[in-house]
Write a protein that binds this DNA or RNA. Structure first.
Lengths: 141, 141
DNA sequence: ATGATACTTGACTATTTTAGTCGGATTTAT
DNA sequence: ATAAATCCGACTAAAATAGTCAAGTATCAT
């Protein structure tokens, strides 16, 4: 049960972006240097974040990215969803309910996995980018 | 963020075993048939469960496996630990605390990942095999 | 005894996922 | 013009996953 780098990087990069978000857009090059994430990889990630309208891009020289919503309104859930970092405990989501409804012998544990997914998703839905930035700046005092 | 089959199978197999645990040991062949898990793969999994003293083996004809503790005392945590299904949100656990203590720029999000790990592990520590068996038999009424 | 059943062990392998890299195109401030 | 950026798609090496396979050992039922 592990978090992939893509999901982790997406959050790291957005926290970084949120902290430097201001008059000028923030370039991926800067984020790359500060966070130690490959620039090429960041481009892939931000392409997805842009498509899900989490960030806005500014092209050309002196360009970069800007948050497209208030940090308070961007939840971990939205970020992970944007980069396809999903919580998967089981494959049989799409199967017919007959064959896997928690009653058949095969799915003795189906409810458990659902519970687990909900448990994790709760966490992701509660945390916003703002929370993360605040936690961090507070600790810095 | 996904659960691997190994972890899921381990839990499924143990719930199955717990339900049929009685006078006679339960063979992997039976579990394999009931749960639709490859016998060869189950053997690998039970080898680990045995080493962690979660199950006892009975060799030979009419042999099989038996729980080595009360179902109440076997937590999800123990099971996942036995089959190396760990909750990993980040790699830098072993790094020097200087370079990654939640203060450096790189690890703005370190605390978040720790929180997430704890959140998930809490879930695993609370659930016992007994809980799972009970939930299931109750639903069957 | 002996055959069938079942655990034990270790090596092997195909597939999938991950974590990038690479090349080139487009846009824009200076 | 040119340098700094985003954009886009294809490619790939390495790791993890989810098994399979082969050869053994132990034990029970008969």
């Amino acid at each position: 049960m592990k978090l992939t780098s893509k999901g982790r990087y997406a959050v790291m990069a957005l926290v970084d972006l949120a902290r430097f978000d201001g008059v000028n857009p923030v370039s991926l090059r800067d984020i790359s240097l500060r966070q130690g994430i490959s620039l090429d990889y960041l481009e892939q990630i931000f392409s997805k974040l842009r498509k899900k309208e989490i960030v806005l891009s500014v092209r050309g020289n002196q360009g970069g990215y800007v948050l497209n919503k208030k940090a308070k309104e961007i939840k971990l859930t939205n970020i992970f969803d944007a980069v396809d970092e999903k919580v998967k405990t089981v494959q049989c989501k799409k199967e017919s309910k007959k064959s896997c409804n928690g009653r058949s012998t095969k799915c003795l544990t189906h409810n458990l996995w659902d519970e687990l997914e909900n448990h994790i998703n709760d966490f992701f839905e509660k945390k916003s980018l703002e929370d993360l930035v605040k936690e961090n700046t507070e600790r810095r005092i």
